[in-house]
Structures are given as structure tokens and as C-alpha cells.
Design a protein around this nucleic acid. Structure first.
Lengths: 350, 350
DNA sequence: CTGAAAGCGCTAACAC
DNA sequence: GTGTTAGCGCTTTCAG
């Protein structure tokens, strides 16, 4: 590039100037396009003198490497971007997951393209399509409902995929010990003298909900307590319906003396109901999944805590192992939950 | 594509098959590449018969449009992806923001590439670079600290940029009425009989922290109360340091009768300290920024609430207006905060 | 060590 | 309506 050309570019700065390309850098530095490519990609074997000239030109022009063009031509077609399908990026579990994945990805120079499915299979399909169209290197997915078929089909086309929170035999997955965690919670409650423990669970279409429900059933059996179907409410969704369900339970003829809630928002709804009835210090409560400020409430809320950061990290590491060429059979990581007694779960029956 | 070729492809299905391209679709459908492009991009003027043949071939081959190649060639160079720089995707304010932007973007067929800067300018630069390299169509940024220079410089190169939470004259921005909101909170506290109101603020390097501090000062003046410097603690970061600061204030010779906290985590730290001292029902508290479960605590926490969803929506709409060609001067949207009295802010002095 | 030519998968601009 | 040609910005391949 001659001085005259450079001047012209400077003059047109105000307008929407075309972004400089490698060619521009090359002609300004007086080298070939390929040499610029080598420097930009930090390939070895370029003389220090040329490296300097190229770098100077890069700075002068504010050249920014175009990864979209790069990955198009590149043999491995990698975009250094992974996709993530969340249930809802605004809920604390999802966002902690997202953050953990982001942190692992950053260490590998990779960015995360995330979307929220809201448990809607259509939305999930749409997002999946959008991510595949952008040729993400791999996917981390919290599957909406249990329709894994479309998901696994798409996996055949795109790169590797790691399932989170809900497993499938054919794919890598990271889940928690839902049954064992729930059983431990039940044992804990029973150890404090309760025999009538109600269980409130999420939509039965969600795998974790049925697993936790199963854990409750197994736990009762292990403790030699007969299941009372009236104490089980499934398909509870969100805080509001939970409030009604809990109120119904507690004002019934034979109310439970303790509650075991199968999910975050259900726990919060239950607390609302207990407070409204003034029973928060008389009815025991253990929730599955921890939440912020659980230790600031009165009573402090006992929970079976998941570790979303550990889950996210595990998922990301599985994915990157695949991207590094691991062709082994599907791996299924189970991250353990932890019972945190804080007060609400240690209330004894009247 | 002949039948023989198709058979060969089917046979190699098990191995890592190259993803089908438009050419593959074209030859299978017996049309030109351009016709496939027209169908895939839903351009008008293709006979129904050919549309059908192309679509059949697409389904048969599981063809997925390659957006990276498309945007490279396309005149506008749009990638249908926007970048978002957050403080920390795992905190509730950031994730609500993210979600709101995602929702607006979805309506425009656009995906969101997000990263967390953790208030670190280096990390911010790095992420910015990564986003620009991927040629995002535009950026929504919650600036780390107040070093806007690098940010605005990058803006000249890339597409449009909207600043959130911290404004700059040269760029579009969405902020909240930090001063007015804080003044309203102070007036509210004073109206309940307090004269000694302490203020705890975040790092002075953060614009919102200084604005809220200024609101406190102005509020005092408006109420005719002399500022007592001993009641002001700035540069409080996180829950722990807050706890120490609050304990110090409340055990001093002339303790405050009310607390005004300038940020989420500071409010929570203050509650911890108050609970530890058993003063939560004696010292009034109003926090800037709402948080989940604030209405489940005892006492319920009065706050000046921001509306992260509205902020995110506004930011996304500003950005898409620019992407639609708006070349007007920078616009600065201010989203109003709202005082929510819940109990803690209505405690009267002893 | 450096460079010229070809082409990644797609769309723009023009033929027909 | 449909097809042909050129080329987006880059990396690959291969020649020097």
C-alpha cells in the first residue's frame, strides 16, 4: 500500500469504512498475504523482522482477524465457539452452569453461544438449528422435557454433544444423584421424628422430577413407612401452584408434619405458604437444590445442594475431551449432592 | 448426484462424514446451486416444483445452512449474532439482563454471544476482541470500571454498541435514575423519623456507586440534615467486607438508626450483620437493587428496585434500531427505579 | 523462510 | 424463472 492510499483511507475515516483485511495488512507491511496469516496465527518460522513489520501494520490499520472466514477455510472447520441450551438463562441454576462452562471455555479460547428453551421442545429445536447453522464446535444441552430423539438426531450431524441434568445412553452426560440425594433428605427428616412427610415434585415429564420422586418412594420403603398417596403432589410448576398445593396439604384432615420439595421454586412456594399459615417453625422442610439467601430466612432452609459450578465444569471438560479427539464410548458423570442442615429440616413434629 | 454417489454416502455414514453443502443438495435435486440458495433463503420467484425438489433433497441429506459462509459472502456481512459483555453472568441482575436481550434478539433471528468481564478491564478487552473477531453485528456492554476509552475505540471498528448501566456521551446507553432513586429512598427513611442514616457504597471506580453516593449527599441536603462522614463507607465489595463495615458502624459511639445500601451484595451483607447483632427489627434498611426472596426475609426488605428486564429490552431495541440503519446522534435511555416498601425501611428509630 | 495459486461454502451481479 | 461466473477473507498446498 502506497502512502497515497493510506492517506485516502485516513480521510474517509468518518464514513463506514470497510474493515481492513489481511490483504491490506500485507500490502502495507510489504509482505505476502500468507506471511500475515502466519503471524496472525502465531505460526513459527517467520523472521522477527517480518513479524515486526506485520504487527506494525496490524496496529496501524486496527486490523481484526476474521474468525468466520478463517474457520470456513480451515481444515478442521472449528469456530472456537460452543453452543449451550439452557432451561432459562435467568434462573440461578442455569446461570451458574453457564458461568462455569464459560470459565472452562475461556481457558481454551472458546466463546459460548447460549439460548433458553424454557422447557419448550419447539424452542429447543429452533435454537439447536440456529446453533448448528453457526457451526458451533460442540453443544452442551439441558434437554427440554424428555424428547431426546430430535436432540440425538441433531448430534449425528453436528459435533459432539453433552447432556446435562438428564441423561441418554447414547450421549455423554452429567447428572446428579437425584435418588440418593432425595433418600438422604428423607432419612434426615425421619431421623428427626417425622412419619408423615409430604413430597412435592415438578412436572413428571422432567427426568429429574421422576428420579427425585422415586427417591422419595424408595426412601419411605427403606424407613419402613407406608406411602400415603395423599401426601404426594406432582406436576407442581412454579411458586404459585405450590402455594396452593401446600396450603391444601396442611389444612387437610391428616396434615404432614414435614415437607420434602423437589425443586427450587417449589421450595420457595412452600416457604411462602408456610409463612402465610404461620407454620414455618412447626412444619419441617427440606428442599432439593440450594438457592441464594436460604441461610438468611427464618428458619434457615435445609437443602440437598447441587453444585452447578461442578456440573458445568464437568460438562465442559467432557465436551473439550471430545473436541480433542476422544472417540471412546459415552461417558456419564454423576456429581454428588450434599445435604446442608440449616434449621428448617431439623424441626421436630409437635 | 447420481444414485451411485448417494449409495456411497449412505455407506460411509458411520464415519465422520463431511457435512453436506449446497452443491450436494443442488446435484441431488437436479438444480443449480443458486436455486438452492434461493430456496434456503426464502427468496421469492422459484417455481413450487423446484422448491419441493430442493426441500426434499435438503431433508434427505440433512443439509444445514452454513451461516458462517453465508455471512462472509453476503453484502451486509451480518452474522445474525450479537455480543454481550456482562459483569458476571451468574449474578441475578446480569442474567435477567441477558435473558431480556435474548428474548428481543430471538424475535430478530439473532443469537447472543455473552461473556463475563468480572469488572476486569483486561478480561473485557480480551472478550471484546473475541467478539469482534467473530464479527458480531453489534454489542451490548456493561462496561468494566470506567475505562471507556478502549471500549469506544473498539466501537469505531466494529458495529454499533450500546452501553448499559454506565453511560458515555458518544455512545447509546441505557441507565437507571441512580441519584433520584437514592434520594427517594433517603426521603422515605427520613419520613419515618430517622436523622442518622448511614450509606454503604460499592467501589468508587464504578459509576453507579458514585451516582448513588451523590444521591445520598443531595438527599441529605434536601432534607436539611448535616452530612456525618463517619456514616459513609465507600469501596465496600461483597458481602463479607460489608458485614465488618456494618458491625463497625452499629457498635460505634453514635450509631446510625438506619442503613442505606448501594448495591445488592452490600444489602445482603448488611442483613447478615444485622441478624448477627440481633438488630434487624430495630435498625431500618433500604437497599438499592432488588433481589430474589427479599420479600421472604424477616423483616421483608424494602428496596429501590431496578427493572433489569426493561433495561435489557431497551438496550436491545436501541441496538437493533442501529442495525436497521438508524444513524442519529447517541441516545440515552433512562429507566426509572421504583421504591418498594416491604417493612425493613419503615422501622422507626427507638 | 516466503509466496502464488486454489478453494472453503456461500451470495451478488449479471446473464439467459 | 433459472443458471453462470466471480469472489467474500481466509488457510491450504505446494513451489521456490
Amino acid at each position: 500500500m502506497t502512502d497515497e492510499q493510506l492517506t485516502t483511507m485516513t480521510l474517509t475515516e468518518g464514513s463506514a469504512r470497510r474493515a481492513p483485511t489481511m490483504r491490506d495488512v500485507a500490502s502495507l507491511a510489504g509482505v505476502s498475504l500468507k506471511t500475515v496469516s502466519r503471524v496472525v496465527n502465531q505460526e513459527p518460522g517467520v523472521s522477527p523482522e517480518l513479524v515486526r513489520r506485520v504487527l506494525d501494520a496490524v496496529n496501524l490499520l486496527d486490523y481484526r482477524h476474521n474468525l468466520t472466514a478463517s474457520s470456513l477455510r480451515r481444515a478442521d472447520h472449528k469456530t472456537a465457539t460452543i453452543g449451550m441450551l439452557l432451561e432459562d438463562s435467568s434462573n440461578p441454576f442455569s446461570s451458574a452452569l453457564h458461568r462455569a462452562v464459560e470459565d472452562v471455555a475461556r481457558g481454551r479460547g472458546t466463546l459460548v453461544l447460549a439460548g433458553s428453551s424454557d422447557e419448550d421442545p419447539d424452542r429447543q429445536r429452533e435454537l439447536l438449528h440456529a446453533l448448528v447453522s453457526r457451526r458451533v464446535d460442540g453443544l452442551i444441552v439441558v434437554p427440554a422435557s424428555d424428547d431426546h430423539s430430535g436432540l440425538l438426531y441433531e448430534r449425528r450431524l453436528g459435533g459432539p454433544m453433552v447432556l446435562v441434568d438428564r441423561p441418554a445412553p447414547e450421549a455423554d452426560s452429567v447428572t446428579v444423584d437425584n435418588r440418593a440425594g432425595t433418600m438422604r433428605a428423607l432419612r434426615h427428616i425421619v431421623a428427626h421424628g417425622h412419619r408423615r412427610v409430604a413430597f412435592l415434585g415438578d412436572l413428571r415429564s422432567i427426568w429429574t422430577a421422576t428420579e427425585r420422586h422415586a427417591g422419595y418412594i424408595e426412601g419411605l420403603a427403606a424407613e419402613g413407612i407406608t406411602l400415603d398417596p395423599l401426601l404426594v403432589v406432582m406436576d407442581v410448576r412454579g411458586a404459585e401452584t405450590t402455594e396452593r398445593a401446600v396450603s391444601g396439604l396442611l389444612t387437610s384432615a391428616e396434615p404432614p408434619t414435614a415437607l420434602l420439595t423437589g425443586q427450587n421454586l417449589i421450595t420457595i412456594g412452600a416457604i411462602h405458604a408456610l409463612q402465610r399459615l404461620g407454620l414455618q417453625h412447626r412444619v419441617a422442610l427440606v428442599g432439593f437444590d440450594d438457592f441464594p439467601l436460604a441461610d438468611l430466612l427464618d428458619p434457615r432452609v435445609s437443602v440437598v445442594a447441587q453444585d452447578p459450578a461442578a456440573i458445568g465444569r464437568a460438562a465442559a471438560e467432557l465436551l473439550f475431551a471430545r473436541l480433542d479427539g476422544d472417540r471412546g464410548p459415552p461417558r456419564h458423570v454423576v456429581v454428588l449432592t450434599r445435604l446442608i442442615p440449616r434449621g428448617s429440616g431439623e424441626i421436630r413434629p409437635a
